[in-house]
């Protein structure tokens, strides 16, 4: 309650409250759309999990939940790296192949040199691979789609060479400490959880993260603001490659061997999770929290489909996944339009 009545406008007294102040709040519809964009995946995840828990006797059991978490956690690291890449407006199709390559190199390292080699070799190769891709994209100005598609094929090729076209299988020795990294449920979940948390911090609270978001939102502006755009681009592919190969190595620690046929199409699942999590495929906006919701939602749905439709086979799972993704992209387009992002 303020008893004084001021004249509505004071024109002469310098910069008063103008239109910028008058529109301090966005229309409700736009604010709602922004919320759905940001937390939609989480809401759907909660909803799906609640319904599944209520209707299925097996879904809410610890053995089921732990199998969802333990078996998938490492693959989610691909989505973590992909989130950064997509926020810059790029794409990294090589991560599925790098995941497999990392697995084989991890097993090879464990077999020939022990735990340190098993960890460092895949990380080094992934980082190198990512750096080359990043340099081609940032310095040579090539399209990320083409460069990383070449990376996808190249990493598969290297994998075939290392394993003599699948004839040689590298095994992680039974007593190797390396196996501990992938064992059980808690180790993978904590490892991956910590990396996601660090990723979130990097994105929201570091200058690097701000640069990535800025360059995805308006690359020209980022350049003119003097942000280190090219370096950020290289680093983002380096990060994605390292995470993919590292995830593969951890996967091999869990499986006990380097599986050559693994990882096909994982890049697409990662992209799907990122997009479902509310990150704009055109770049400039996104969150790690959203990607967490995205990967969990996909995993839960996958689990439910396996459970209810297993008699139809895995092809059916892929079809449902695809339909779901199409739905999400449609929804995102509508949300973007409501917020007048485009």
């Amino acid at each position: 309650m303020s008893p004084t009545v001021l004249p509505p406008t004071t024109l002469s007294s310098g910069p008063g409250p103008g239109p910028s102040a008058a529109s301090a709040r966005l229309p409700l519809r736009e604010r709602l759309a922004a919320q759905v964009q940001r937390r939609g995946a989480l809401a759907v995840l909660v909803l799906v999990a609640a319904i599944a828990s209520a209707t299925s006797a097996t879904f809410p059991t610890w053995s089921n939940v732990s199998s969802i978490l333990g078996n998938n956690a490492f693959v989610w690291l691909l989505a973590l790296g992909m989130t950064f890449v997509i926020i810059t407006g790029g794409i990294d199709l090589s991560v599925g192949s790098l995941y497999a390559l990392g697995g084989v190199l991890g097993a090879y390292g464990a077999q020939t040199g022990g735990t340190w080699l098993a960890i460092l070799l895949p990380l080094a190769v992934g980082a190198g691979w990512g750096t080359v891709q990043g340099l081609l994209i940032a310095r040579a100005g090539m399209a990320p789609f083409i460069v990383t598609l070449a990376g996808l094929l190249g990493a598969r090729g290297l994998l075939q060479a290392v394993t003599h076209e699948g004839a040689t299988t590298y095994l992680v020795p039974a007593g190797s400490w390396f196996r501990n990294l992938g064992a059980g449920v808690w180790t993978p979940v904590i490892l991956v959880g910590v990396l996601f948390a660090l990723g979130g911090l990097l994105l929201t609270r570091s200058r690097f993260g701000a640069t990535l978001t800025a360059l995805g939102g308006n690359e020209n502006a980022a350049l003119l603001m003097g942000l280190p755009v090219a370096r950020a681009k290289v680093l983002v592919y380096l990060l994605s490659g390292t995470l993919a190969a590292g995830a593969g190595a951890l996967g091999s620690a869990r499986l006990g061997s380097g599986v050559t046929t693994i990882g096909v199409g994982y890049e697409l699942t990662a992209i799907a999770a990122v997009v479902i999590g509310g990150t704009l495929l055109t770049g400039g906006s996104g969150s790690i929290g959203g990607t967490v919701s995205g990967v969990l939602l996909l995993a839960v749905i996958h689990n439910l489909i396996d459970h209810y439709f297993s008699q139809y086979g895995s092809a059916f799972t892929d079809a449902v996944n695809g339909a779901f993704l199409a739905l999400v992209v449609l929804l995102q387009t509508l949300l973007s339009r409501t917020q007048q992002l485009t």
Binding site: T211, L224, M225, G284
Partner: peptide, 30 residues
Amino acid sequence: YQEVNLVPLMSVARNLYLGREPRRLGLVDV
């Protein structure tokens, strides 16, 4: 520049400080 060269999707404060955000312990002090 004539055409506003900022990043529309980022917050006003972010745009103002991009590249020289105030930091504490290496992290951006939001």
